[in-house]
């Protein structure tokens, strides 16, 4: 029953995100759209929450073992994070970048992973609470890192305008370079421990299920690579050796690695994390 409603809820989620994207991008050019854009975003978030609720009712913790459910879940975390930020910090224009990214991720999940085939797992029971914790940690990390990607893109855009000395009007309303840099740093500082814990719990689960902590499974390898990129980001900030511009690039590259990890590895590269059998 609830299972049958999920496609409808997902469809309305994507549709409302499409509207919210139009509103948010439009708000860059027409200030009057700003309020409308916020309402559309809240509407999209509500539809999104409903879809997740229905998914959880139908599949319980299995939901996030599907690519589709996983994307649904971590974009929801990202957008929720953004809305909380927006309520407290009111960083202008952030939504005009966050919402299109959420829309693309959600559409991508629908196109690539509509079938609810769970992760293969190599004939191992994946229903344990340990696996669920491992996945939730990873996806929460991705949610924060997705936002740090957005902050990085905004930083690079504004930096280019300031260097090039030609301004698009909406860039005047972006947060300053310092604010974007700080925001990106905080989000990575928040997402990186989650990612680390996800890898640790994953290794622990691997020991329980397959008897080995680390197997150089493609997913494990990519996760390590992603972890190194963000570790490098944090290290460079601690040592203050790099300009914020390079750090912003690193945040963009890091999220690209996350996307490869999530979509490419899980769908097309054979291994223990591949969806479907």
């Amino acid at each position: 029953m609830t299972e049958g409603l999920i496609p409808i809820a997902y469809g309305s989620t994507v549709a409302t995100y499409a509207l919210a994207t139009v509103g948010q991008v439009g708000a860059l050019f027409f200030r009057r759209w700003g309020r409308l854009a916020v309402w559309l975003t809240l509407l999209a978030w509500a539809a999104h929450s409903l879809a997740i609720g229905l998914g959880a009712l139908a599949f319980g913790r299995y939901l996030i073992l599907h690519l589709f459910g996983a994307v649904l879940f971590f974009t929801w975390l990202g957008v929720t994070n953004y809305l909380v930020f927006h309520a407290f910090a009111r960083l202008p224009v952030l939504g005009s970048f966050v919402i299109p990214v959420a829309f693309l991720l959600l559409s991508g999940a629908g196109v690539l992973g509509t079938g609810m085939t769970p992760v293969a797992g190599g004939h191992v029971d994946l229903t344990g609470a340990g696996v669920a914790i491992h996945v939730v940690l990873a996806l929460s990390g991705y949610g924060a890192l997705a936002l740090s990607f957005v902050a990085g893109v905004m930083y690079l855009l504004l930096e280019r305008q300031l260097k090039g000395k030609t301004f698009r009007q909406f860039l005047y309303r972006l947060p300053s370079l310092a604010e974007l840099d700080r925001l990106g740093y905080r989000l990575v500082a928040f997402g990186f421990p989650l990612l680390s814990l996800a890898i640790l719990t994953g290794a622990f689960q691997a020991q329980v299920a397959w008897g080995r902590y680390w197997d150089w499974d493609p997913k494990e390898t990519w996760s390590l690579l992603t972890w190194l990129i963000y570790g490098g980001y944090l290290l460079s900030r601690r040592l203050a050796r790099w300009s914020p511009r390079r750090a912003a690039w690193l945040a963009v590259v890091g999220f690209a690695a996350v996307l490869v990890n999530l979509f490419v590895i899980n769908l097309w590269v054979p291994g223990l994390h591949k969806f479907g059998s």
């Binding site: 200030r31 009057r32 504004l158 300031l162 009007q169 860039l171 005047y172 972006l174 947060p175 300053s176 370079l177 310092a178 604010e179």
Partner: peptide
């Protein structure tokens, strides 16, 4: 002032300099 950008953006050199500094440092 709320619906148009008419009062946004500096239209004198000294003020433009301050505005740009603000874009960098907040």
């Amino acid at each position: 002032h709320a619906e148009t950008e008419i009062s946004h953006n500096a239209v004198s050199v000294p003020y433009a300099a301050v505005e740009l500094a603000r874009r960098v440092f907040g």
